[in-house]
């Protein structure tokens, strides 16, 4: 909390935070890569392998979903799902793993989360770029509206980030935190809209399904990828508002955690 008399200016504080976050980023990289940088490579490859395995599987079965090639459909779904789930997964224990770093006054819990999530965003985004070679070899057509694909990906990352803040705080705040996080993550297999389109649901139930913000992002991505070949239902406004609320919730929880002191149970 603010205890200094030397009033730190905002820009100075921001500089410090950036310094800390970048140091944390490098630290995370070193921790991941061990000595030779294999770890980071692995981290990139991890979602990549997953997505490509899915692709190969569906490519071999050679089916189409509606009038959309199944590879593209599966890829879009899995990318969205992993885009938010990976962040949750990796951010969950970030505080517990880096507790000792909090001994440095400059290092705040939020910074730990920020560093981790930046790394995650990079790695999942790189795996998302798997689309490029797949488009290149012609398995998937070039997106009809590329800007929608990009926007929806950003929305996915934003959502994942917010959820990451929430889960990692819950993990630290609540005794049952880990279990709650696991439930949230398992839920996210289903509420991301990865496996189906809203159009396939009876109209009466679409509204309920569309309450999940990730469904909007997935639909948006499919609209961007396939254009008129699918009927997409989504509302950008709702998605942005929901993400905003989740971000707020996450930040409040993170503050709660950092106020309580993450070191309570260290000794």
């Amino acid at each position: 909390m603010p205890e200094t008399t030397q009033q730190t200016t905002f820009s100075r504080a921001f500089q410090i935070q950036m310094r800390v976050v970048s140091a944390l980023l490098r630290r995370e990289l070193i921790a991941l890569s061990g000595k030779k940088g294999i770890g980071f490579l692995l981290m990139l490859v991890e979602p990549l392998i997953f997505v490509s395995a899915i692709c190969v599987f569906f490519y071999l079965t050679r089916r189409t979903v509606g009038n959309v090639p199944v590879v593209a459909f599966a890829m879009s779904g899995y990318c969205v799902m992993w885009g938010c789930r990976f962040q949750m997964m990796k951010m969950m224990n970030v505080v517990a793993a880096n507790r000792s770093l909090l001994y440095h006054r400059y290092v705040k819990i939020f910074d730990l989360m920020l560093g981790r999530s930046i790394l995650q965003i990079c790695s999942t985004s790189i795996s998302f770029l798997m689309f490029a070679p797949i488009i290149y070899i012609g398995l998937v057509d070039f997106p009809v509206k590329p800007y929608l694909v990009v926007f929806s990906w950003l929305a996915v990352l934003w959502y994942g980030w917010s959820l990451g803040l929430i889960t990692s705080s819950i993990y630290g705040l609540v005794k049952m935190g880990e279990k709650i996080c696991i439930v949230i993550m398992v839920l996210h297999i289903w509420i991301t809209g990865a496996f189906m389109m809203v159009e396939w649901l009876p109209p009466d139930y679409r509204g309920y399904y569309l309450l999940f913000p990730m469904v909007h992002a997935t639909e948006m991505m499919r609209d961007g990828l396939f254009g008129n070949r699918v009927t997409a239902h989504y509302s950008v406004l709702y998605m942005v508002c929901a993400n905003m609320v989740l971000t707020y919730l996450g930040l409040v929880l993170v503050r709660k955690l950092s106020q309580r002191g993450a070191m309570d149970d260290s000794d």
């Binding site: 630290r27 921790a31 793993a97 000792s100 770093l101 001994y103 440095h104 070191m263 260290s266």
Partner: peptide
Amino acid sequence: QGGLAGGLSGLD
């Protein structure tokens, strides 16, 4: 304890 990350080398 504290201040040092266990997983990293002293130099890191």
